[in-house]
Simulated scan of single mutants.
Amino acid sequence: MSPDRATRPGGRTARVRAAVRAATLAELAERGYQGLTVEAVAERSGVHKTTVYRRWGNVEGLIADALELASGEPWPVPDTGDLAGDLRALTREVLIGFTDPEDGPVATAFVSAAVQNPSAARALHAFLAARHEQAAPVVRRAVARGELPADTDPTEVVRVAVAPLYYRLFVSGEPVDTAVADRAADAALAAARAGALRAAPAPRAPDGQTPAG
């Protein structure tokens, strides 16, 4: 993010950024990553092409900025009363995000861009890390209720729950439906209950003592 965008979040710069982001998402939904162009985003947003090039550089910059904005947005975190229900709700939410007629093409375009461009990959990594942390409270609540070992890694449980969906969507091409989403959630739950998703132990000093933190 440029200093100008950082220091004037509520002014014209913020409005320009929001307009460009909205145009980027609309173009991705209609044309996908391969069809995204700076010129089309500029025309749709009403922002001059030279401004878009100067601030975002290229289509990868547009995608990275859209992901950066999205990572700070709230995500619906379920609270069904137990971890089994919460994880199923999470995996179904991910499934909807990729299969919804309006949002699905945008989400797929983000992943496609990340495969092909390092800056988009870094932005997607940060976006997913933020989403995993936003979802982590469902695991922390389960630990507090005594459903899981005390040293369970909350974000790792979330990663393990959603990973099978990404594998089917973007690697194997196998069908994905709610049954698949529920099975992925149940598998993560079983692994967590068995203690397979514990947090990594703190590194030890050369003398064998855990460093003070």
Rank of each mutant, 00 (worst) to 15 (best):
R92L: 11
A144N: 10
F127H: 14
V160Y: 06
S172E: 03
V106H: 01
G146L: 09
R168L: 08
N117Q: 08
E147K: 11
P137L: 04
V106I: 14
G97N: 13
A114P: 06
V162D: 04
V157Y: 13
T91E: 09
F170M: 02
R168N: 09
P149D: 08
D103R: 14
Y167L: 12
R131C: 03
A126N: 12
L124G: 02
A135I: 00
A144P: 12
F127W: 09
S112T: 13
A114G: 07
E93K: 08
A142D: 11
E93S: 15
L124V: 05
R145F: 06
L128V: 03
F170Y: 03
R140L: 15
E156W: 08
H132A: 15
E102L: 08
R159M: 05
D153C: 14
V143P: 10
L124S: 07
A144C: 05
A136C: 04
P137G: 06
V115W: 01
A163P: 01
A113T: 00
P101K: 05
T155P: 06
A163H: 06
A135T: 01
E174L: 15
V94K: 04
P137K: 03
H132C: 08
D103I: 04
E133T: 11
E156H: 02
S112I: 03
T155Y: 04
R168H: 14
S172P: 02
T91N: 15
L148Y: 00
L128D: 02
H125N: 07
V139C: 10
N117K: 02
L165R: 09
A109I: 01
D100E: 11
D153Q: 11
